[in-house]
Design a protein around this nucleic acid. Structure first.
Length: 281
DNA sequence: CACTTGACCTGTCCGC
DNA sequence: TGCGGACAGGTCAAGT
């Protein structure tokens, strides 16, 4: 669920809340989640935030950076003077903050805090030299990204070189960065493409349709502040709304476009795939 | 090399 | 009401 729109939403809020703040302390409650020496961050200020695919990057003033992948259930939650008391916490923040699922607590000046909660503990946070961010094991393998360096031409080329099913290629972060299961399902439906069609079999026009469809669903996801299907919440403790606007993901009713077939769910690569047999050929 | 399955984890939901 | 099992999406490692 944290895909490009969700991580971008987190990134924008963290930028807003943290920029310029001085790191006073970092409490690591779970060593498996936080890798590296957190003391390197103490006394530094937050310069800004970046995003690489689904990975967050928080740049510090001493040429170190904090990288984080929230995977499925990781949550960054901010408490500070800007939020006052009105910000009610989503019930998706299980156990509250701090709580049994809080694994890292960042403290800043004036009592501001950033909590990292993660029920399933799949996520990770690490501190690394800023110049080594792009050679990080995950980031160095990331493919080009939508809205950044993934042009239509490059997109067509990537598809043409893979005989794997189109859906799996879209979700392969080493081929292209940012798209996960929810947006892949919706984009394929929007472009009327069968998720199982081998990527190399799509002609230029069809690939172009898919490219625009992906941009469309990602933009829609951003507009709604991400999809809170599972555990996604924004740092201010609120939920995204895209899950209320999915095209086919999570649906089981008659296809809203052709109204001739039911949306069918099946598994591809172990993940739920939603498909209209009538209009996705 | 391409592709699949299992592991990582726990909360939620569904059926009995 | 309680319990067991399937299921959730993102990646990595191991197996076919």
């Amino acid at each position: 669920m944290p895909e490009l729109p969700e991580v971008e939403t987190i990134k924008l809020q963290l930028e807003k809340f943290l920029k310029g703040k001085k790191v006073v302390s970092i409490e690591v409650r779970n060593r498996k989640i936080f890798q590296g020496d957190e003391k390197k961050a103490l006394g530094t200020r937050i310069l800004g935030t970046r995003r690489f695919g689904k990975v967050l990057c928080i740049d510090l003033s001493n040429k170190y950076s904090i990288l984080a992948h929230v995977k499925l259930t990781g949550q960054f939650l901010y408490k500070g003077p800007e939020l006052s008391s009105k910000g009610r916490l989503s019930e998706k923040v299980i156990g509250g903050i701090p709580g049994p699922h809080t694994h890292v607590i960042f403290s800043f000046e004036k009592g501001a805090k950033l909590y990292y909660n993660d029920v399933r503990r799949f996520g990770w946070i690490k501190i690394t030299k800023s110049e080594e961010v792009i050679t990080d094991n995950y980031i160095k393998k990331l493919g080009p990204e939508f809205f950044k360096d993934l042009t239509l031409e490059k997109f067509r080329e990537i598809l043409s070189k893979s005989g794997r099913s189109t859906k799996l290629v879209l979700m392969d972060q080493e081929k292209m960065g940012g798209v996960g299961n929810i947006y892949a399902n919706d984009a394929l439906w929007l472009a009327r493409i069968n998720p199982r069609t081998p990527a190399s079999q799509l002609d230029g026009e069809t690939a172009g349709r898919l490219y625009s469809a992906i941009l469309t669903v990602l933009k829609t996801g951003l507009k709604y502040g991400g999809a809170s299907e599972l555990a996604f919440v924004t740092p201010d403790g609120k939920e995204g709304k895209y899950q209320e606007h999915t095209l086919v993901y999570g649906q089981g009713n008659i296809c809203p476009r052709c109204k001739r077939a039911k949306i069918v769910k099946f598994f591809m690569g172990g993940r739920g795939t939603y498909w209209c047999s009538n209009c996705q050929k």
